[in-house]
Design a protein around this nucleic acid. Structure first.
Length: 313
DNA sequence: GTCCAGGATTCAG
DNA sequence: CTGAATCATGGA
């Protein structure tokens, strides 16, 4: 029996609006795996230990939380980039000389990188390899339901690393993680011994952060890039997944390029907010907007010559 | 039944 | 070093 007592709906102004169609892409487009759309278009999600609902509204979002938890407004303000800082970053992307990017931005105008919690981001993307977004959501929900603390009713927070580290085989099996169960457990065992890992990694430069994340079990280049981008807000991080490989191959004439080469291209071509550009291209590719190669090709970029790998102590 | 999924790891060459 | 095989699971 439901026991959630909601606050009244409140308005959260956003410099960049999020109309319903864009809100869908924003909350169900592979950045977060914790939101579900209700029948009336409202989105319900658990962020940290907060159960919240949001819905599109003129000038921003309407939102509500559990009674007595108006503090969630501050979190949502940051989560959705209410001040529009990313609008400035988008304008600094090379869309004026890149018709592919310009079209993607136009189609998803206002799309932003959500500012997710690093812990929750890492759990989500540890589950992401070789899985579709819908299936990732199922796995993450199972982790919460099985081992996460109750927030209210059937809504659970995501489990801590220490809880995940002592998960039984049966518990992990119940989450249908497949071979990713070893990733979750392995990373949990590493990070439970490091309670301040977020603060420590936040201090690192983005290249060092990516290297550090990749020392964790189940974290390779792509997952590390996603955690850096969505979890640590590093807008220059450029994840290369199957969609981006496809998008760059068809729309940028980069067929046959390997992921690492494409990541280098992305950083060089798109610059400081490459990850933001990546999200626009990702959305456009998934929407089938890049299936036909662009007529105008951007100026070709020379391949970088191989460089010896950096050794670190 | 076959193929693929916001890949990472391990193994062969 | 590079490229291929393998991983567990569910949906199309």
């Amino acid at each position: 029996m439901p026991s959630v007592v909601w606050t009244a709906w409140r308005h959260l102004p956003l410099v960049q609006e999020l109309p319903e169609k864009l809100l869908q892409e924003q909350l169900d487009g592979g950045q977060s795996f914790r939101w579900q759309r209700l029948a009336d278009g409202t989105w319900r999600g658990v962020l940290g230990a907060c159960l919240v609902e949001v819905r599109a509204a003129q000038g921003g979002l309407d939102w509500r939380g559990r009674q007595g938890q108006l503090v969630a407004e501050r979190m949502l303000h940051n989560y959705f980039d209410a001040t529009g800082g990313q609008a400035v970053a988008v304008d600094q992307l090379p869309w004026r000389s890149d018709p592919v990017l310009a079209a993607a931005i136009k189609n998803f105008s206002g799309l932003r990188i959500l500012r997710h919690d690093p812990h929750e981001t890492l759990i989500g993307f540890l589950c992401s390899s070789n899985k579709r977004i819908l299936q990732i959501k199922v796995m993450v929900a199972a982790l919460a339901r099985t081992m996460g603390e109750v927030v209210v009713d059937d809504y659970h927070a995501l489990p801590s690393w220490s809880r995940l580290a002592r998960a039984t085989d049966a518990e992990l099996k119940a989450c249908a993680l497949g071979y990713r169960a070893a990733f979750i457990r392995g990373t949990a065992q590493r990070l439970e011994a490091r309670p301040h890992w977020v603060e420590e990694m936040q201090k690192l430069s983005t290249p060092d952060l990516l290297i550090e994340l990749q020392t964790l079990p189940g974290v390779g280049p792509k997952v590390a890039a996603c955690v850096a981008l969505f979890g640590f807000g590093r807008l220059e991080s450029f994840p290369v997944d199957t969609w981006v490989v496809q998008a760059l191959a068809s729309a940028y004439q980069l067929k046959g390029w390997k992921p690492e080469q494409l990541a280098e291209f992305g950083r060089m071509h798109f610059g400081e907010a490459a990850g933001l550009a990546q999200q626009y291209l990702f959305a456009a590719a998934r929407a089938g907007l890049l299936s036909v190669p662009a007529e105008v090709k951007p100026r070709p970029l020379k391949r970088k010559s191989k460089q010896s790998p950096k050794r670190r102590g």
